[in-house]
Amino acid sequence: MNTIGLRRLAVGQRAVIARIQASGELGRRIRDMGLTQGSEIEVVGRAPLQDPVALRVKNFTLTLRNNEADHIQVTPLDPAAS
């Protein structure tokens, strides 16, 4: 399976988190919000200036800056499967 940076997902695309390479405060905040390996996410929107991005995970919406999203590798889900 190909993994790509979360930043490269398009709005409406769904993916599964493959790997999170953030430590310290950022890593902790990402985990606290339920972004863990194996979680399914969907990009629900982008801010008017294309950054930050809004994600749906575990039945709620959260925001993430592009440079923070770069710490997260995801495996995109086949659109047909969803």
């Binding site: 950022l26 990402i30 919000m33 972004l35 709620f60 919406t61 959260l62 925001t63 923070e68």
Partner: peptide, 10 residues
């Protein structure tokens, strides 16, 4: 800057 990992509540 503080991470912008923030909830968008309904």
């Amino acid at each position: 800057s503080t991470p912008f990992v923030m909830e968008l509540p309904p």
